[in-house]
Each structure stands twice: as structure tokens, then as C-alpha cells.
Nucleic acid binder design. Structure first.
Length: 472
RNA sequence: GGUGAGGUGGCAGAGCCCGGCUAUGCACGCGACUGCAGAUCGCGACCACGGGAGUUCGAAUCUCUCCCUCACCA
């Protein structure tokens, strides 16, 4: 039985999907005006693994992750670079998808972009105005059309679903400047009247563009309906973004809750401060990936619980690299054994099912990837204590299957690199030359060939069984 | 002022809901393999839970209290 921590109730709950064997899941995507940093990567890898585990457990997952492609920051950047906002968003949508793919994140079922759903947003806003949950204000200075705000007092019974905050306890002006056009300081914008030179869409209130929160309400409603299973995102989105989504969507649909489980991933911190664009302490995924592969990065991020903060540092990544190599080593050896024997040790056979059940137990306990990895490591140590080529082929395959399914399919570790056959021949040629030199005890030649292989990115290993190699 | 999350061996951060052997990885020590080095593998040691008090036969885990860190708040 899968148990999941629900931010809305602050409790770990039994997971039950609305429709049997199916899960609808919405995760808030990026505002596409910049490259993805590691903090984002953490969120998307966390939800990727959640999705993979659900699928592995037999659910068909409809996984929606949007692109926020209209926003003040995008407009600002477009103006700075003197290009259209679409030039910015198209570029970063492509780069975001590229980064996700490189991180071995499974492609979402759909990745809608906000600007394709303006009509839906307008109709939700119209409905909210009609119901008395939203109101039209005067245009802001410099704008030629009015704004529309959500009236939090009209839905004060719903306020605090996620944050547990009461309206009266909130501190005015701490993040956003006080605006006296609003009825209540917590009222948030649904529609922004356009200013000169800004991208805009027609609406009953004149030209303008949607507010941030309404985008996700419209897209989740469109793709998953008025009530779906899981809504996720980074913990920083809990307030105000998700809180606002709940208010808008539920007032519009007259249906509560919009999502049965709210799941939020923890921050990635750096020197114990959150990694963010605004603090300017971020590392871009594409930069870090020049040095560390996707499995190493994933290992590092999955080595803590998805809700706990993880502190980023070079030495922590380096540590993950060493740890991951240990796992990868067993996996590679299993993959490349080409002999088999007669042994089927009882201890090893039963360890397979123990590993599987331990892994499941960990994952079912609110996706405890850290514990799941510990189970795999324990299994690895036992596997390593046997000589693989003496095991029956059947047992070898069963062990490999554990690594492929749990480590590969569920956690998204291990990468199969396709090696060109020409390159392979070249490597094997060099190794045999080196072995000739070794037999002749020509250590100078032998070592120079080893260095050459190293420069090609090939690491070799001399064992009593001969020389093996792998790409690094 | 409010709200939420945290403080665990040298380092990392699972275990806490549901009290009883705690794991896991890195680093460390020893050994195996090797022409050597690295890499790899095995074994071992460290025996920790922010401070204080309480409950209990027994507390990392429950209760109270104090200290500290981080995040969010129109």
C-alpha cells in the first residue's frame, strides 16, 4: 500500500486514486525565460521518480507539466534583448525540454503552454466575476485596460487550505507592494491590463494577459478535470501559487478538493540557503552536466528524501559520484558476464526477493528513495561477494533484472551508452597491443597505451580474468 | 508577529507517525587482485542522535522546556 504525505492535511495518507489503476498528476513547470537550474532539476527528478514508481506499481499515469510562457519576467527579458516574447519562450521551451531529457526525466504525457489556453482562462475569470469572487479595478498607471483581481474575502473559508495561514495573520507588504486598488491586500491578480508595447490578448475587460496562478488552474482543469489525484511542485510554490489555484479553481467549479494529494518537494540549498535565481546562487543543469552525468546527479538528489532540504556542494556531488560508481560497477559487471556456472546459492536467491520487497516498502513509504537505495546497496554487497561467472545464467539474469528494474526503470539511474563499433575495435586493438607489451614486460609502452586509452575516455582494469574496460 | 520544515557517527542524511539489533554511502584502517599505480572487490573500526528535564523495565523515536538554522507570508 502506497502512503503519501499530503501538504493539505500535513499527514501521511493511504493513496487511493480516483479511477482504479489510473492517476492524473499535474506538476507546475517553469517560467521559460531562463535555463533550468539544479533546484528545478531536483523538483522534476523528484516528480519523475514519483511518476515512475506509480507506473511501476501498475498505474497508468497522465502526467501534465506546463510551460509558463507569458509573465512579467519574460516580457522584461524580451524588451532587454529587443526580441519578441515568443522568441524568448520558444528558445527556453526547447532548452528546458532538452535539459529534462538529458536528466533522464521521462517525457510528460503533455506539456501544454499557457498562451494556448487564454480563452479558457478568460472564461474562468468571467465566471468568477459573475459569482462575486473577482472584481475589475481601474487600470494601473500606464495601462490602457483594467486589471481583474480575485477577492479573497469572498472565499475566506477556503483560504489557508495549504498554508494553514489565516488572512488576518498575514503581513502586508512583505513581498509585494501595497496596492490600494485592491479590496484586500491578499487579493491576487487574475488578469492584467496591457501597457503600451506589451503582448496582449482580447478579453471582455480589454486587452491584457493572464496572471500567473490562473494559468495552472486553466490547464489542470482542461487536462485533468475538476478533481484529480496529485498536484505537485516545489515547496516554494505552496504559497501563493498553489493556494491561489485552489481558490480560483474551487470557486469556479464549486468542487472541492481540486486535487486529492498535494505533494511538494523540498529545496535544494547551497550553504543552507535556497538555490534560486533571485539569490543568484544557482548552478545551471547544463553546466553541472558537463562534469557529472545524469545518473550521478539523480543519485545525488535521490539520496535524500524528496521533502527534505538537500544541501548542494561540490564535495557532496563528488561523494555521490563515488557511491554511484559502486552501483554502476555491479551493474556493468552483471551486464558483461559471458560465462555461467552451476551455482545457485540459496542466500543469493532469497536476497533477490528481499531486495525487491525492501525496495517496494521504502518506495511505498512516501517515496523514500534514500532507503530504497540503501536496500540496493545491501544487495550489491552480497552480489559482489560471489563470482558472477560461477552462477547459473538464470540467476545472473534475475540479479541483473533487479538492477535494471529498480535502479533503471524506477530510479532512472544507469545509462546505456551506445558505442560505435569502429571505436570499439580501436579500443580493443589498443588493449591487445598493451597486453602484448605487458607480456614482454615493456612497462613503458604498456603505460603509454594506458594513458592513450585514458585520453579517449576509456578506463581499463587488469584482473586475473584479463583486461576489462569501460567508458568514463 | 504568523505559518511550515529542520538540528543524527569525521562528512552526507534515512530511521521518528508505530519506543526494544539501527541501517546506507563517502572518507578511514586492514586484506585480496596487480609488473606498478589507479580502479575494483572483501573485511573492519568508529558506535552518533542540539541542551535540559520527564514518562518508561527500555527513548534518536513519546511529553515538556530552552537554544539554534532555514523557508514562506498580499
Amino acid at each position: 500500500m502506497l502512503r503519501v504525505y499530503n501538504t493539505a492535511t500535513r499527514k501521511v495518507e493511504d493513496f487511493k486514486s480516483i479511477e482504479e489503476n489510473k492517476v492524473g498528476m499535474y506538476v507546475c513547470g517553469l517560467t521559460v525565460y531562463n535555463d533550468m537550474h539544479l533546484g528545478h532539476a531536483r523538483t522534476y527528478i523528484a516528480f519523475d521518480v514519483i511518476r515512475r514508481w506509480l507506473e511501476f506499481s501498475g498505474y497508468e499515469v497522465n502526467f501534465i507539466q506546463n510551460h509558463t510562457d507569458i509573465d512579467d519576467k519574460i516580457i522584461k527579458k524580451a524588451n532587454q534583448e529587443n526580441v519578441s516574447f515568443e522568441d524568448i519562450t520558444n528558445k527556453y521551451i526547447e532548452r528546458t525540454q532538452d535539459d529534462l531529457e538529458k536528466l533522464q526525466v521521462k517525457t510528460p504525457t503533455s506539456m501544454p503552454k499557457a498562451t494556448d489556453y487564454i480563452v479558457e482562462m478568460v472564461s474562468i475569470i468571467e465566471d468568477l466575476i459573475e459569482k462575486g469572487n473577482a472584481y475589475v479595478t481601474d487600470p494601473v498607471e500606464g495601462a490602457f485596460a483594467p486589471d481583474v483581481y480575485f477577492d479573497v474575502i469572498s472565499a475566506s473559508d477556503k483560504f489557508g487550505t495549504l498554508t494553514g495561514q489565516r488572512l488576518e495573520d498575514m503581513r502586508a507588504g512583505s513581498r509585494v507592494a501595497i496596492d490600494n486598488r485592491k479590496k484586500h491586500p491578499a487579493d491576487f491578480v487574475l488578469w492584467k491590463g496591457a501597457k503600451e508595447g506589451e503582448p496582449s490578448w482580447s478579453s471582455p475587460w480589454g486587452k491584457g494577459r493572464p496572471g500567473w496562478h490562473i494559468e495552472c488552474s486553466a490547464m489542470s482543469l482542461k487536462y485533468l478535470g475538476k478533481q484529480f489525484d496529485i498536484h505537485g511542485g516545489g515547496i516554494d510554490l505552496k504559497f501563493p501559487h498553489h493556494e491561489s489555484e485552489v481558490l480560483q479553481t474551487e470557486c469556479h467549479t464549486n468542487h472541492s478538493p481540486m486535487a486529492n494529494y498535494w505533494i511538494h518537494s523540498g529545496h535544494l540549498t547551497i550553504n543552507n540557503e535556497k538555490m534560486s535565481k533571485s539569490l543568484d546562487n544557482f548552478f545551471l543543469v547544463r553546466d553541472v552536466m558537463k562534469e557529472y552525468s545524469a545518473p550521478v546527479l539523480r543519485f545525488y538528489l535521490l539520496n535524500g528524501h524528496y521533502r527534505s532540504p538537500i544541501d548542494f556542494s561540490d564535495s557532496n556531488l563528488e561523494e555521490s559520484l563515488s557511491a554511484y560508481k559502486r552501483l554502476e560497477g555491479v551493474y556493468n559487471r552483471l551486464e558483461s558476464v559471458n560465462k555461467s556456472g552451476e551455482q545457485e546459492p540459496e542466500e543469493l536467491v532469497s536476497a533477490i526477493s528481499l531486495c525487491k520487497s525492501g525496495f517496494s516498502e521504502a518506495m511505498n513509504d512516501d517515496f523514500n528513495t534514500r532507503e530504497a537505495l540503501a536496500v540496493i546497496f545491501q544487495f550489491s554487497r552480497l552480489v559482489n561477494s560471489y563470482e558472477l561467472e560461477k552462477l547459473t545464467i538464470d540467476l545472473q539474469r534475475k540479479i541483473l533484472d533487479v538492477f535494471e528494474k529498480l535502479g533503471g526503470v524506477v530510479l532512472g539511474l544507469f545509462t546505456k551508452t551506445e558505442i560505435g563499433s569502429e571505436f570499439k575495435v580501436q579500443i580493443e586493438e589498443l588493449i591487445s597491443q598493451r597486453n602484448i607489451a605487458r607480456v614482454a614486460k615493456d612497462w613503458e609502452l604498456s603505460d603509454s597505451i594506458r594513458d592513450k586509452l585514458m585520453s579517449l575516455g576509456v578506463e581499463i582494469q587488469d584482473t586475473s580474468e584479463g583486461t576489462s574496460w569501460k567508458l568514463i
